Structures are given as structure tokens and as C-alpha cells.
Simulated assay, not measured.
Amino acid sequence: ASSMSVYGEGLYETTAGERRAHIRRSPAEIKAGAWNPSGPDGERLRPIATDENKPVDLASIYALTKYAQERQVLIFGEAYGTDAVALRLFNVYGAGQALSNPYTGVLANFASRLANGQSPMVFEDGRQKRDFVHVRDVARAFRLALEQPHAAGHVINIGSGNAYAIADIASLLAEAMGVPEIEPEIINKARSGDIRNCFADIAKARDLLGFEPAHRLEDSLADFAQWVRSAGAIDRGAEMKRHLEARGLVL
């Protein structure tokens, strides 16, 4: 189980259709509220689906550990003649998430806030995009990877293949939880190390695994909201924000 975090920023293309794979925002740009990355010469860029050919760009300790783990597994498999595959999971959601851990997935974080009558905290301007994949689709992807011998030795994206703006996710979840009047709190500040956009190209998963997502986010939030209500959640979002600010990790 690897992670989309190994990519850093996702793929972009210029207005001329040229791919840009090595994109990072500087702290100065982020502090100035220049949320969208630009090219080396300042050219405008458009985010596109990230495929497995994008070089990794390890921008966090978490990404470093996940990349080390996937390489360990694949090197072991090649050396010992054992089938091994690394699935790069995008933003996984579903029943069973740790609702009271503010550093877990964004949907769980938002759900904890909403369940306690608080606005979801959205960093930057809320227009950053992510790919959300249901845990049942992820479980099926692992089963398929076990069943398909020609997947051995590969790294494969597992996502929904769709891109969602984070602020839109907060509003959709509020509606699903029956509190549409609770609007997201747009922070207009960034967390250190956060990327702007990354969403999955899942063509390789379709080709090698026969994988096709069965659970669209829009159709799954009602069930997720019902589970949140039954599970209970302690909101630690404000505490998380204070900790990040105290350590200089909010720009």
C-alpha cells in the first residue's frame, strides 16, 4: 500500500499542451496567496490527471517512507522471484476512518467538524483538487492485484479518476449530514508542505487489473454521513490548527 503523496504536486500542462512534471510552489508564493503553481518562466499551467510516469517528488517524511516501502517490496519481489505490486492510493474514505484524528483524511476531518456543529476548516482558497476513492473500491483493487499475475512489478494508481475541489467537498458533506447551512471556513492560509492539485489517471489500473471504481463520491456521502452519526466524533480541528501555527507550519 503506497500513496499518491510520492508524486508531490500532480501533473500540469501549459496552454501549448506541454506536460510539466516538476512543479513546486515556493513559500514566498504561498504567503502571497499565489495558490496556483506556475511554470519556470511564469507560464500559466492547468492541472491534469497524474499517471504513473510522473517522476516522484518527495516533499514530506510521509511520502519518503511510503516510497521507501514500495521500493522495498518491489526490489524484494524481483530478487526472490515473488510477485509484488505497489498500489498508489489516492484519498481513501469510508466507514471505519479515525474521525477524531485531525491529521487523517480530509473527509473524516470535515465530518468531525460538522458532527459537532462546526464549520469545516479549508486551507488556501478551497479550489485545490483531490481524488477521493471509496475504501470498498480500494479493497477490490487489492484483490484484483492479487489475482492478476501480469501486474507483478508495477506501481499502479488507485483512485476514482475524478477531481474535486476541497471547498465543494465540504459543502457536499454538509448537505449529506443534514446541515447545509454550515458553510466551510476558508482559511486563506496554507499548511507547510501541502500541494495544490493531484488527482489520478487510472488507465493503468483499468488495463492491468480490470479495475473500475464502483462508488462515486456523490453517491456515497449519504452512507458515510449515516456512519459518522452512529460512530460519534470528537472535533480536534481547532487544536490541530493551533499546533500547526505554534510550529510555524501555517503560511
Rank of each mutant, 00 (worst) to 15 (best):
N157S: 01
E181F: 05
A170C: 10
R216Q: 02
H134G: 04
W227L: 03
Q226C: 04
I169M: 14
A139S: 12
I158T: 02
N162G: 09
N157A: 03
I187R: 12
L146P: 05
A163C: 12
A205I: 03
L208I: 02
Y164D: 12
A151Y: 07
I158N: 02
K189M: 12
V122G: 08
A203R: 15
A170F: 12
E185A: 03
A225T: 06
G161Q: 12
E185C: 05
D219E: 02
R130D: 11
R191H: 07
A225Q: 05
G193C: 08
R191S: 12
C198P: 06
A200N: 05
I169K: 11
A190E: 13
A231D: 07
V135Y: 03
I186A: 03
H154T: 03
Y164F: 15
V179F: 07
L208E: 07
A167T: 13
D131M: 09
H154W: 06
H150C: 05
G153E: 00
R191D: 06
D137K: 00
S230I: 02
V228G: 13
R143M: 10
Q148F: 04
A167F: 11
V179T: 05
G193S: 10
G161S: 14
F142R: 04
E181Q: 13
L217P: 04
V122Q: 13
L209K: 08
I187Y: 12
Q148G: 03
R196P: 09
A205E: 02
A225H: 12
H134P: 05
E175Q: 12
R216H: 01
H134T: 01
R140Q: 14
R196Y: 15
R127K: 15
H154R: 09
Q226S: 10
L208V: 04
D201S: 07
G178A: 00
S230R: 03
N188K: 01
R229W: 10
F142G: 05
S171G: 08
V228M: 11
N157L: 02
A190D: 15
A176C: 00
L221E: 00
V133T: 06
L217H: 01
G161K: 15
N162K: 14
I156F: 08
P213S: 01
A163T: 14
R216K: 04
I186S: 03
E147Q: 13
L173H: 01
G178Q: 00
N188W: 04
D219M: 01
V228S: 09
I186N: 04
G210T: 13
A170R: 11
I195V: 15
S160H: 14
L144N: 02
I186Y: 06
G193D: 11
R136Y: 14
D137F: 00
D168F: 08
D219V: 00
V155F: 11
F142P: 05
D207I: 05
R130Y: 13
R229L: 06
E147C: 05
H215M: 08
D168L: 10
Q226K: 11
Q128H: 15
A151S: 10
A165E: 15
